[in-house]
Design a protein around this nucleic acid. Sequence first.
RNA 1: GGAGAGGUCGCAUAGUUGGUCUAGUGCGCUGGUCUUGAAAACCGGUACGUCGCAAGAUGUCGAGGGUUCGAAUCCCUCCCUCUCCGCCA
Length: 424
Amino acid sequence: MLDIKFIRENPEIVKKAIKDKQFSGTIDIDELLKIDSEIREIELKLNDLRQKRNDLNDKIKNAKDPSERDVLIKENSILKPQVQEFETKLSELTPAFDELMLWVPNVPASDVPFGEGEEGNVEVKKVGEIPTFKFTPKDHLDIAEGLDIIDVKRGSKIGGFRAYFLKGKGMVLEQAILRYALDFMIENGFIPMSVPVMVNDGALIGTGYFPWGKDDHYRTQDDQALIGTAEVSLTAYHSGEVLKESDLPVKLVGQSPCFRREVGSHGKDTKGVFRIHYFNKVEQVVLIPADENLSREWHDKMLGYAESILQGLGLSYHVLLMCTGDMGPGQRKKYDVETWFAGQNKYRETHSDSYFNDFQSRRLNIKYVDSKGEKKYVYTLNNTVAATPRLLAAVIENYQNEKGEIVVPEVLRKYTGFDLISND
RNA sequence: GGAGAGGUCGCAUAGUUGGUCUAGUGCGCUGGUCUUGAAAACCGGUACGUCGCAAGAUGUCGAGGGUUCGAAUCCCUCCCUCUCCGCCA
């Protein structure tokens, strides 16, 4: 959520952000500002009326003469309908205002390139050599099925479209990747967290997934939703709290199952375990003092953690600076990391690194007291550490050999206890 | 599924015969006195929004309604949290 003061003072900037982020039609800033000024006008009038009423109440309270008291009460009764009239108007306008505020996206940072969609994203770096093979590399499903470590046929029998089983060493390898990623973050001072995966709407509104992404979330009978990422629970962890500046930065790493309906992805990535309704992810979330330069430092730093994971795994990747049209509503700047998938012969998204300034913390009401004793909203960031089985698929495709076996990356061997997945 | 308790200005709490609550107290934080420095002690300040240069006014005690001249306090609806019983990894 943006500060209404900022919207009042910079309506053009906000309108441009809406347009650039391809959210035209979802929110009308002029309508929002109109309601805002109506509310303020009414509040002014109410202020006067209430002052009169309070004065009279004081007099009533202190009146000694009963007849004088009656006169005062009568006088105050006349004020009542006027007060009520304005209060009724306010009670109509306020919810409308609150609802509209939830639809105002964040403004992209100044160095975010304009673009309507993914074609506008800009590659900012490319790391690692693309592996070459003396044979035509297969995609992860072909290899995994050959080794009987992924079973999507029985997956769909049991769980429908986009469901899967990881089996045997495939399942162990997945766990190894997750644990490797988790351990790396713990070594870097992050607090490991296991998080609620069914959450109240407040957490999803607060992190900026709702109202936009409501359709992409599963709901429970108890009107909660399943998280699509641990970011939701981790970022909301301190909601409604006032932290001390010395508590910052809060560095959290959570692992959770993630559930996504993929409503807008019909027919996309239907082969293998690349785009699925249920996956596991290690996610990093950081809360910092309110300083955009610090946000940018941490944004790069968190990208660096993700890069270290990939480099440790020996995977090649490139980093894209996402354009305005390919960002989430709350994000101020976002990098996507795309990892090389040898079998698909292209880079595919595996990580997403974003900073928000106070967009999330305003919605979640997370503040801290700074050195001057002032209360401010914290700034939030998050990034993927490792998402499986997508990253598992990348490992499978890049570490296949001619025999259709998978060589386990060095760093994972202490977790797997084996160094090769074969049919022997 | 059944029963109960509760949501108060950083944290913890007081406040349920409606008006003195412009919300008390403790802790924390912070300024000062004292001290070589610190601790302790003492004194003071410490929620947020709106209008206003300011003084001040006004609103907010989970949210929204209602009763009343007047609501943290009474009534209703909703949200959230917790506890116990039952079931259960």
